[in-house]
C-alpha cells in the first residue's frame, strides 16, 4: 500500500525525473535509427538460436510441457535482451554523459536533484527496454511461442529485469574511473548471458553449478519469463521477482547518493 502510494505520484508527468526522459527523447530524435536498430538485436538471436539451432535441438520438456527449443529459448533471449539493454543505458551511456559530456552538471543546476537523475535515467532505460521487449513478444506470438495467457505478465517481467539491472548498473558505474573499468561489466555479463539456464535447462548443469546459478541475477529473470510464457506458475516466482526488485531498489539508493557525491562535491 505505502509502496503504491510512493509509486503513484511518480507516474505523474509533472514529476522531475520525467524531465530526463524528455531529454533523452530529444537526444534520440536526431538518431532515431540507432533507437530502431535496437529492435533487431533480439530478433536476430531468435532467428539464429531459436529457429536455426532449434532445428538441431528438437523438443524439450519444460515444466511438464513438451515444447520446441525455440519456445524454450525465446523467453531466455527476452530476459537477456532486457538485461543487455538496461545495462547499456545505465553503464556505458550513463558514464559518457556523467564523465565526458558533463550533461548532468547542467541538469543539476536546475531544480533537478541527483536522485531525479538516477530515477530519470532508469525510467528511460525501462521505457526503451519495454518497447524492445514488446516487439519481441509480438514476434514470439507470431511464432506461436506464447503458450499461456500468463504471457501478459512477460512484459512487466522484462521491465522488472530491466529495473534490477538498471539499478545495479547505475550504482556500479558511479564507481568506475575510466573506460578500462568497463571490462568488469563484460566479465559479469558474459557468464550471466551464457549460464543462466538461458540456452539449456538448469538440469543439464553439474549439480554444484546448479546451486550457484539459482542465486545469480539473470537466472531470476529467465525463470520468470519462461514460467509466464509456458504458463507454469509457482509461488516461488515471487522470490525471483523480489530478488530483482531488491537489486533495483538498492542500486537506485546507492546510485542516487553516489551521483550526489560525484557531481556535487
Amino acid at each position: 500500500m505505502t509502496a503504491t502510494l510512493r509509486i503513484l505520484p511518480f507516474l505523474s508527468w509533472r514529476r522531475r525525473p520525467w524531465r530526463l526522459v524528455e531529454r533523452n527523447v530529444l537526444a534520440y530524435r536526431r538518431i532515431w535509427y540507432i533507437f530502431l536498430s535496437g529492435f533487431a538485436e533480439p530478433l536476430l538471436f531468435l532467428l539464429s538460436i531459436g529457429v536455426g539451432v532449434g532445428k538441431l535441438v528438437g523438443d524439450l520438456h519444460v515444466g511438464g510441457h513438451l515444447v520446441e527449443y525455440r519456445t524454450f529459448v525465446a523467453p531466455g533471449l527476452l530476459a537477456i535482451a532486457a538485461m543487455n539493454g538496461s545495462l547499456l543505458d545505465t553503464t556505458f551511456n550513463f558514464f559518457v554523459k556523467m564523465k565526458y559530456s558533463h550533461t548532468y552538471d547542467g541538469v543539476l543546476a536546475s531544480p533537478l536533484t541527483p536522485r531525479d537523475v538516477a530515477v530519470g535515467e532508469i525510467t528511460w532505460a525501462l521505457l526503451r527496454g519495454a518497447a524492445y521487449s514488446a516487439a519481441f513478444l509480438l514476434t514470439m506470438l507470431a511464432f506461436g511461442d506464447l503458450r499461456s495467457w500468463w504471457s501478459l505478465l512477460a512484459l512487466p517481467g522484462a521491465v522488472l529485469i530491466g529495473f534490477g539491472f538498471a539499478g545495479v548498473g547505475l550504482a556500479a558505474t558511479t564507481f568506475m574511473r575510466s573506460f578500462v573499468d568497463f571490462d568488469y561489466v563484460n566479465m559479469a555479463m558474459i557468464p550471466l548471458f551464457l549460464f543462466s539456464a538461458t540456452f539449456f535447462p538448469l538440469a543439464r548443469y553439474p549439480a554444484g553449478l546448479q546451486a550457484v546459478i539459482r542465486f545469480t541475477p539473470l537466472y531470476q529473470g529467465v525463470v520468470l519469463e519462461r514460467s509466464f510464457v509456458i504458463g507454469d506458475l509457482h509461488w516461488t516466482l515471487l522470490a525471483n521477482a523480489a530478488y530483482l526488485v531488491a537489486m533495483g531498489v538498492i542500486g537506485l539508493r546507492i546510485a542516487s547518493r553516489r551521483i550526489g557525491l560525484l557531481l556535487q562535491p
Binding site: 538441431l56 535441438v57 528438437g58 524439450l60 540456452f199 539449456f200 543439464r204
Partner: peptide, 10 residues
Amino acid sequence: GLGGLVKAHT
C-alpha cells in the same frame, strides 16, 4: 551444454 541437447536429438 547446448551440444548435449543437439546430440540427444540430431
